[in-house]
């Protein structure tokens, strides 16, 4: 049985992690490689590095960071943020990324998914969708939830999978940051119609929230940032507790 995955997400700006990090024992809490290595050693199943740099220099620094991550870290990692062409994806692949995630650029240009998947395989492409409920329908947003689109979540997710995305990373903008848990019924409905694995993101406040989305929500993986960075839910404890709940995890 494939284990449910626990995935810390690191936001990176100009090569450094930006979210509040409350770890002791790290020489430099801003060092994205060191923090990733710490999570890997603690039992993270994968890592996600999101580039939130806005500048050309920041993007270049991020690519160099990806090379260092690939050299030092022994688990798979996904990189995202600002990937809008096949060349962008190719640079990150060459730097050693195992997967890339596309979000806004794929909404603006869905053919980007086909192009990257055709060249590097579906296992390399994660479609990230940020959505919120508008008039009773889940609608995709861009720019961190600030910009509405006319893409409905389920049809867009299915289209992305048909085009070759190998995984879905779905974040509810209605739940992100609330610490009130995930919209499990929506995740379960997505799992019922999509042939690809689903990563749940945004909303976790406690272990039970993560357990719920992996069972009731049928998600294959849970991604989180602040609960890990704050040290509030250490990964070893999270996995031990999930194991006690008979959720298959890699210990």
């Amino acid at each position: 049985m494939v284990a449910k995955r626990i995935i810390p997400c690191l936001d990176v700006k100009d090569g450094r992690t930006v979210k509040g990090v409350n770890f002791v024992g790290l020489r430099d809490v801003g060092d994205a490689v060191q923090l990733g290595a710490r999570y890997a050693a603690e039992g993270a199943d994968e890592l996600v590095y999101l580039d939130i740099s806005a500048s050309v220099e920041g993007r270049k620094t991020f690519c160099e960071l990806v090379s260092r991550v690939a050299a030092e870290i022994n688990i798979p990692f996904t990189v995202g943020g600002g990937i809008s062409t096949v060349d962008d994806a190719a640079r990150l692949l060459d730097a050693g990324a195992d997967k890339i995630s596309v979000n806004t650029a794929a909404i603006n240009n869905p053919g980007l998914i086909d192009a990257i998947a055709a060249k590097y395989g579906s296992q390399f492409v994660v479609i990230a969708i940020d959505a919120r409920v508008v008039d009773g329908r889940w609608m995709a947003t861009t720019h961190g939830g600030r910009t509405a689109t006319d893409r409905e979540l389920f049809s867009w997710a299915k289209e992305a999978a048909d085009r070759g995305a190998g995984e879905l990373l779905f974040t509810s903008m209605d739940h992100d940051g609330t610490r009130d848990g995930y919209p499990c019924e929506t995740y379960a409905a997505l799992a019922d119609v999509l042939p690809i694995p689903i990563i749940a993101s945004g909303g976790a406040g406690c272990v039970q929230d993560i357990a719920d989305v992996l069972t009731v929500g049928k998600a294959d993986a849970a991604l989180a940032a602040s609960i890990f960075h704050s040290g509030e839910i250490p990964i070893p404890r999270l996995k031990q507790e999930l194991n006690k709940l008979n959720i298959p995890v890699r210990l």
């Binding site: 049985m1 494939v2 284990a3 995955r5 199943d45 579906s122 296992q123 190998g166 995984e167 042939p195 690809i196 694995p197 294959d220 993986a221 890699r250």
Partner: peptide, 15 residues
Amino acid sequence: DAAAGEKIPHMGWNS
């Protein structure tokens, strides 16, 4: 075999 009910590709950690 997709009919076996598992997601393909087989991706992730297995024992």
